[in-house]
Simulated assay, not measured.
Amino acid sequence: MSSTAKISLRDVHKGFGPKKVLQGVDLDVAKGESVAIIGGSGTGKSVTLKCVLGLLTPDQGSIKVDGVEMTTASRTERDEMLAKTGMLFQGAALFDSLTVWENVAFGLIEGQGMKAAKARDLAIARLEDVGLAADIANMSPASLSGGMQKRV
């Protein structure tokens, strides 16, 4: 995690049913500091980052980015933080329930409210920019090679 913002996690907890993934996580990342989160499979690395980004809501605790409490942030505050953020998970972490083009266009549709038809056209253009043919747009991410998933 490379930060152009100050990030602070205090007593963050997150579970999924009986599985407790995060239990009292505390972390400070200073502006300009780079931090690596390492650990074994299932230890909460991705869940921690997803909570910071607001993709998941912690069950308990505080997450502040540049002093703004992200667990209760307004849509505008969250959008401002996300506009400065980029992330790629090791396994591409695509939504398996969405098609390739829907994964590419997710931010346009959900974040910017763009109409699906226009977002699809833009997604296909971006796929072509990274050497992926338009005919993969309606495929599921699972049907792609690992390299193709990374480009998506």
Rank of each mutant, 00 (worst) to 15 (best):
R78N: 04
A117Y: 06
A30V: 00
G146T: 04
M148S: 07
E110C: 12
Q60C: 02
C51L: 04
V104N: 07
I109V: 15
G67R: 08
K31F: 11
K64R: 15
A134W: 02
M114V: 12
L9Y: 09
F89N: 10
L88A: 11
V68R: 12
P58D: 03
F106G: 04
G44E: 03
D96M: 05
L53G: 14
S145T: 14
Q149S: 09
S74H: 13
K150I: 01
Q112W: 14
A73P: 11
F106P: 02
A92W: 06
K50I: 00
K31W: 14
G24E: 05
V47Y: 05
M114Q: 11
L56T: 08
R78F: 14
K31M: 09
E80P: 08
S3N: 07
R151G: 02
V68N: 06
A92Y: 11
V25T: 05
T71Y: 07
A73Y: 05
V65T: 04
G15T: 00
S3T: 13
T71H: 08
G67S: 10
G86K: 09
A119W: 05
A30S: 12
I7E: 06
Q112R: 14
L82R: 15
F89T: 01
P58T: 00
S2Y: 02
S62R: 11
G40R: 04
V35T: 00
L53F: 13
S145K: 10
G91Q: 13
G42T: 03
G40L: 00
V25P: 00
D121I: 13
R126I: 01
L132F: 02
L122Y: 12
A142L: 14
A116H: 03
G15S: 03
M87A: 11
G107E: 05
K14M: 07
L98T: 11
A119H: 01
A134E: 12
T99H: 11
G67Q: 09
K19N: 14
L94T: 00
E128H: 03
E102D: 13
I7L: 14
A83S: 13
E128N: 06
A123Y: 12
V12D: 03
G54Y: 12
A105V: 01
V104S: 08
S8N: 04
G15K: 00
L55A: 08
A116N: 08
G147V: 10
S41K: 02
T48F: 12
R126K: 10
A105L: 03
A142K: 07
R151H: 00
G39M: 03
K31Y: 11
A123I: 02
H13C: 10
E80F: 14
L82T: 11
T72G: 08
V152G: 08
Q23C: 05
G86I: 15
M139D: 13
I38S: 09
R126C: 03
D79M: 10
V68L: 09
L82G: 07
T48S: 06
A36L: 09
T48L: 15
I38N: 07
Q149V: 07
A93H: 09
V12P: 01
V104H: 10
T99I: 05
Q112C: 11
V47I: 09
D96G: 01
V21L: 03
D59R: 00
S140F: 13
K64M: 15
